[in-house]
């Protein structure tokens, strides 16, 4: 059971704008994404307009505004992975799951995100599913990996 937002905000000082990013990070860690209620509540608490908070939150890559799927796929789009063909892996995943990057499947099982670099450049392309790494993924092999998780879901 996640902690309610009203209670979460009280862990930070009222009206201090520096608390904004850590607070948003904590809310996202708790709920998986930022919804309208969260932004409005934080705005009232920190004395910032909701538009400004939305502006700041959309500026950074970390914040999401739609809920994550049960399995969150992160495909590395760093330089080394790109050279080893991560673009076609990403396209293949989009085709299999029928979603674009940044979206969640309708049944809520999968969500897809393309990330900058996961720092594991020697064995690309790397994908990460709920913290579990798969390295040297090929566009042919990705279907089997996704199937594995689909069965679990």
């Amino acid at each position: 059971m996640p902690v309610p937002i009203d209670e979460l905000v009280t862990r930070y000082k009222r009206g201090v704008p520096e608390s904004l990013l850590p607070l948003l990070q904590e809310i996202q860690a708790e709920f998986g994404f930022l919804n309208e209620e969260a932004i409005v509540t934080v705005g009232l608490y920190l004395n910032l307009p909701a538009s400004k908070i939305y502006g700041i939150a959309t500026f950074f890559d970390q914040f999401r505004f739609v809920s994550q799927g049960r399995y969150h796929l992160r495909v590395c789009r760093g330089t080394a992975c790109h050279m080893n063909g991560s673009a076609s892996v990403l396209r293949e995943v989009e085709k299999i799951l029928k979603i674009n990057e940044g979206q969640t499947t309708r049944d809520g099982h999968f969500s897809l995100e393309a990330v900058g670099c996961m720092g594991a450049c020697s064995n690309g392309p790397v994908i990460n599913i709920n913290g579990e790494f798969h390295n040297a993924v090929t566009s042919a092999g990705i279907a089997a990996i996704i199937d594995q998780f689909r069965k679990k879901a």
């Binding site: 330089t79 080394a80 992975c81 790109h82 900058g116 670099c117 720092g119 594991a120």
Partner: peptide, 11 residues
Amino acid sequence: ESDPGAFMDRA
């Protein structure tokens, strides 16, 4: 460190 292809600081 968010350059793609750089992981010195992390290491």
